[in-house]
Nucleic acid binder design. Structure first.
Lengths: 194, 194, 194, 194
DNA sequence: TATGAATGAGCATTCATTCAT
DNA sequence: CATGAATGAATGCTCATTCAT
């Protein structure tokens, strides 16, 4: 029973991911998503109240998966600098390995209403907290500057990585994204280091 | 005659800026823009072929003005580090002083189609070149690392500043944006410095 | 077995009566009726072919009960004028006592298609015949005019009572409906009397 | 200018009258009305905010015309009984002569939401007042009973005529409606007379 | 019999764009 | 050049009905 329910639910999310990535949210008709998911139009409304909710749930679930990877990727890492390396590596390699997800997070996420973005923003909070905790830990470990504005620095780090990913996507993915980790990190570690 | 043509043209661009900033691109009907500009709906199509073209032209013109400010702001500055400070200062203070423009560049720009974004990307190229030139100059001056990947670094710098501005906007502009210049620059200069 | 069948059948009719009365026919989804009846959506289609059939059957059954009351209410009454008084009294008091039924007959009955109304009209025929018989009897008894057009008069009497009930409903039932019997009857008896 | 605006407006109302009469309100798609009116779908929304408003305006305008006929039909009639004859004559003959209007008032009017009916009810008020004034005048003239409940009597008269018209329509208009005036009036005048 | 998940046809409304004046 | 009335394509969502279990 539950597995069946999950089957359709997951199929719709997966179909939506593909369709959103290919056409963008505003050009993704519900019927197109339904076809991609192999269900009827009406079925979508058994699982989602509005079309927008598909996008929101998609982010919640996909970002949730990503955040788990970040969390488990650094959980036994004691050195804050090494932890930051892991975060950047995961950030680049996961999006490089999952282009549809990359398109949706980098392009579609930004195409949504301000109101919608706020809702989605909630889903990103754990990632934000993870980075801020990492920064605080580094300051305690005396490997990051004590005068760091943690919130501002989190924005600088996230924004920098985000732009690298978006640019890679828009350029048509003509080069390796994960190959940018070393240079990115050198910039980061020098920038925030003691 | 030409001045008259320009009058309407400029009125439409200015009206569009206000309407886009208040309602977002997708909620900005052509008739709303026309009313804000004080012209008839049909008049807009004497100056712009499609609604999207208004957005494109708006960016071209507004970014053009911004880039002039960047250019003139650093033209007599010989020290690359000081030039970078000026760039960051102008970036933050100009957008802080012109909230409508900030909304449109940070929020609406992202809400457009991938295709549209590519066109708009063209308008940003001069800013990109300006930053890259600045980086090259700093490397020559031996104040920036010689091993910098100039293109990647440009993304990191731009992305970092961009995220700071967006976050400031979404937060409701509850703090001073230009007050973030010093911390941002310390991060930048350490990150790219020798 | 038959009793069980009847249990569900009756439950659906009763649920439909409540739902129709509260929301009107067009706003009464099958699933809402099913919930009110305590059965599954699909179960309804074991007893009724189409949603409209519920309404038809509802009228047949409820009007059947009403007509029984009319019939038994006048069966031992010899005076045609007294019989008419009984009919009017039952008409007003029964609908006053059963507001849900009143709503459905006065409001929802009229909201249905012409085709549907014809079918429902069949269910009213016994009432019609009862009034016509009563009129004929009164003519024989020389208490009603001999020149009465029986069919037209039946419409006049029924229409007059019907409007009084509808108006009482729409006004929000702020006064007593059965208190209108005397005035109504004086009008009727003078109108058709010798 | 005004004449042109009115042209389309009137065309839509007339188209709606025909379509409503033929298919009923709920089966009358906006596109069908547009086609009947010879305009594009979107044009309807330049003149009416919602589909329901077409129905409301239709009643307002058509009932307004009817009421004018009632008013002018009795304005120089001093005898209240003669005035009542005129009212009944106009009621039957106008609806007989305008079948589409009859369908819409007798059938579609009843098919609308309770909320909508209340709005439409406003448009009938002048007719109601006209009948009540007529009754009061008759009482003064001593040709109608002094003990008449004016409001109730108005319902009885209107309901009676209304049912005669509806029945005539549902029966397929197989007989003359205006031929029922004499019998109807004899019933009325006896019923309310001294 | 009974269920309720799944279906998919059907429709009001918006709005970018055109064109007669 | 300027107008703004008219156009009509495009789409999210509802809900009566079916059918596998």
């Amino acid at each position: 029973m539950t597995s069946r329910k999950n089957e359709k639910y997951e199929a719709i999310l997966e179909g939506a991911l593909q369709v959103f990535a290919e056409h963008g949210f505003h050009r993704s008709q519900v019927s197109k998503i339904a076809r991609a998911a192999g269900v009827a139009d009406g079925t979508i409304y058994l699982y989602f109240k509005r079309k927008e909710d598909i996008l929101i749930e998609l982010f919640r679930s996909k970002l949730g998966e990503l955040i788990e990877k970040f969390t488990s990727g650094i959980e036994n890492v004691t050195d804050a600098r090494e932890a930051l390396r892991r975060v950047c590596t995961i950030h680049y390699s996961e999006l490089e390995a999952n282009v549809a997800l990359a398109y949706v997070t980098q392009i579609e996420l930004r195409q949504s209403d301000l109101e919608l973005r706020k809702e989605i923003g909630e889903a990103v909070k754990p990632y934000i907290k993870l980075i801020e905790d990492l920064l605080l830990k580094g300051i305690e470990q005396n490997v990051f500057r004590a005068d760091l504005d943690v919130k501002l620095t989190r924005l600088l780090l996230f924004g920098a990585m985000d732009e690298v990913v978006t640019s890679w996507l828009i350029s048509g993915r003509k080069y390796s994204l994960s190959a940018q980790v070393d240079s990115t990190l050198k910039f980061f570690l020098q920038g925030i280091g003691n």
